[in-house]
Amino acid sequence: MKVTIPTALTLLRIASIPVLVVVFFLPYNWTHLAAAAIFTLGALTDWLDGWVARRFGMYSAFGAFLDPVADKLAVAVALVLIVQRHPTMFMAVLAAIIIGREITISALREWMAEIGQKARVRVAGIGKIKTIVQMVALVMLLYYQPIGPLPTLLVGEGLLAVAAALTLWSGFAYLRAAWPAMAASDDDPTHSP
Rank of each mutant, 00 (worst) to 15 (best):
I82R: 04
V83N: 01
R85P: 05
R85F: 04
H86R: 00
F90V: 14
F90I: 14
F90Y: 15
A92Y: 04
A92V: 02
V93A: 13
V93Y: 07
V93M: 09
L94N: 12
A95N: 12
A95T: 12
A95S: 12
A95I: 03
A96I: 12
I98V: 15
I99Q: 04
R101P: 03
R101Q: 11
R101G: 11
R101I: 12
E102F: 11
S106W: 10
A107D: 05
L108E: 01
L108Y: 01
L108Q: 05
R109N: 10
E110M: 09
W111A: 08
M112A: 05
A113V: 01
E114P: 00
E114F: 04
I115C: 03
G116V: 10
Q117S: 06
A119I: 14
R120L: 15
V121L: 06
R122Q: 14
R122H: 11
R122I: 11
R122E: 15
V123I: 12
V123L: 07
A124N: 13
A124P: 00
G125N: 08
G125F: 14
G125C: 07
I126N: 11
G127D: 14
G127H: 13
K128T: 09
I129Q: 02
T131L: 13
T131W: 07
T131H: 04
T131F: 09
V133C: 13
V133N: 09
Q134R: 02
Q134A: 03
Q134Y: 05
Q134W: 14
V136A: 10
V136Q: 00
A137T: 09
L138T: 02
L138H: 13
L138Y: 07
V139T: 01
M140T: 07
L141F: 00
L142F: 03
Y144R: 15
Q145S: 09
P146L: 08
P146D: 12
P146I: 08
I147G: 00
I147P: 07
G148C: 05
G148H: 08
L150K: 06
L150I: 15
P151L: 03
T152C: 06
L153E: 05
L153N: 00
L153M: 06
L153R: 07
L154N: 10
L154K: 14
V155W: 11
V155Q: 01
G156Q: 00
E157A: 09
